[in-house]
Amino acid sequence: MTGFAPTLARELRLGLCARAEIINPLFFFLMVVTLFPLGLDPEPDLLRRIGPGVVWVAALLAVMLSLDQLFRRDYESGALEQLLVAPVALYFPVLARLLGHWLLTGLPLVVLSPVLGGLFALPAAVLDELALSLLLGTPILTVVGAIGAALTTGLGRGGMLLALLVLPLYVPVLIFGAGVVGRSLAGYDVDAVFALLGALLALAVSLGPLAVAAGLRISSGD
C-alpha cells in the first residue's frame, strides 16, 4: 500500500489525455535546436563542435519548461491536499509522479536526440552516447526541476522564478552530460563520465523525491 502504482497509473492516464503536455516540449526542443545553425553558421565542423552542447541545453530547457505546471493542477484541484492527508509515505506517489512525467517528456527527448545529432553532423558512433547521456541526464533534470516546481506551486505564475531556482542546480548535469559527447568526439574514454552521471542520477532518485515532498508540504501551507 505505497501509493506508487496507483499514482503512476493515474499520472500516465492524465498525461495521455493532456497530450499537449507531451508534444509541446518536443516541438520546443526541435525548434530551439534548429535555431542555432540559423543563428551561427551551418558549416559542419562548427556544428559538430557545438552539437552536444546545443542539444543538451535545448533538452534541459524543454524539461524545465514542462515542469512549470507539474503540480499546479493538482494543487488547484485539491488532489495535492488529498495526497498529503493520505496515510502514505509521500516518497512513493511523488516518485511515481516524476517517473510518469519523465516517461511523457524526458524519454521522447532521448528518442529524438539521434535525429537532432544528425542535424549537427555528429558521427553515428557518437549518437548513441548522446542518447545514453540524455537517458541518464533527463531524469535528474526532471527530479531537480520538480523540487523547484514544488516550491513554486502555490505561487501564481512560477515560470521565470522556476528557471532562477533550478538552472543553477542544472549546471553539473549539463557539464557532465554535454561533456560525455565532447570527450568521446575527441577520442577519450567516457566510461568515467557516464559513471558520474549515474551517480548523480542515483543521488537525485533517492533524495530528490524527499525534497519534492517537503516542497509540496510547504507550498500547501505546512
Binding site: 543553477p168 549546471v171 553539473p172 505546512d222
Partner: peptide
Amino acid sequence: RAAGLLAVVGVINVVIVKYSV
C-alpha cells in the same frame, strides 16, 4: 521554510558544482 529547503538543496549542489566546474 521554502527558502530553507532551497538552501539545503543548494548546499549539496555547491559541492557538486565545485567539482564539475
